[in-house]
Design a protein around this nucleic acid. Sequence first.
DNA 1: TTCATATATATTGTTCACAATTAACTTGCA
DNA 2: TGCAAGTTAATTGTGAACAATATATATGAA
Lengths: 150, 150
Amino acid sequence: MTKTNEKSLLQPEDLACFSLYSAANAMVRAYRPVLDTLDLTYPQYLAMLVLWNGDALNVKTLGERLHMDSGTTTPLLKRMEAKGLILRERCKQDERSCIVRLTQSGNALKQQAFQIPEAMGEKIAISQEEGATLKYLCDKLHDGLVAHSD
Amino acid sequence: MTKTNEKSLLQPEDLACFSLYSAANAMVRAYRPVLDTLDLTYPQYLAMLVLWNGDALNVKTLGERLHMDSGTTTPLLKRMEAKGLILRERCKQDERSCIVRLTQSGNALKQQAFQIPEAMGEKIAISQEEGATLKYLCDKLHDGLVAHSD
DNA sequence: TTCATATATATTGTTCACAATTAACTTGCA
DNA sequence: TGCAAGTTAATTGTGAACAATATATATGAA
């Protein structure tokens, strides 16, 4: 009950931002049991998708692909290195730069990853078309916020 | 470049889940400088919106409103108590239950909060109608995932 | 009453996001 | 050559999300 004689603020349930926040958390939560079979977290899975695509990348480029800064990527990649999925080595030409490449076992894990999209598809209750709309709007919101932050 | 003779996986940029994840992170990041003026984080702001609405609530109910479990709410509320925004006290009728209520200074902060929606509105590059669609799709995805998790 | 079960919250430890800072290196210019 | 300015990544510390577990209380059945 809102007190009378007071201006009121919208409640979380009325805000698109809260819906976005809750949906993203729920999505990561839903990925968890599926990714547990590969011993990967959701951000680790995103990094592996990029690496499985074939190229070795430096930390900077990988962070840009994943929309993460180095304060997030560095500890993330160290945990992945500790699991034996990747190697990190300094670039010969520029010692500041750190090159990330898959180990054999990291590369081998790709075969198990084909089951992930299928398993997740079963959990997602929106249509392909709705998913495309959701993606379009999230990208537009994201790009607008990033552009505004300069 | 994808290697030939190998099945390929979609890249993060092609996945709606990654867009959702990135947009939610960007949204929290955009709220940060605005909420810094109230010394609140985004989840703390969500909790304050519920409390500013008037009622004292127990931790369970507040967690349900914010789609959070006790492993998230308890430390969140302790930080808010340490800042002097709220009080937490056991319910007389049921000692298991913990009642959360605003302090005077927590309640007074409401006056400054009216500027938040205005400040955020300027940063958001999607229309009201697109925002409503985004909210609808996020809620549908969220509710479907929650229903599926039982 | 007594015991089993369910509920509400707290605790512990891991992972991620990010700001702020630091260190190492590159580049450009004098 | 030598130094200033910019870049890249690592480091440190805080907040949040969550699983697993623990604790205390309430409730219902025998």
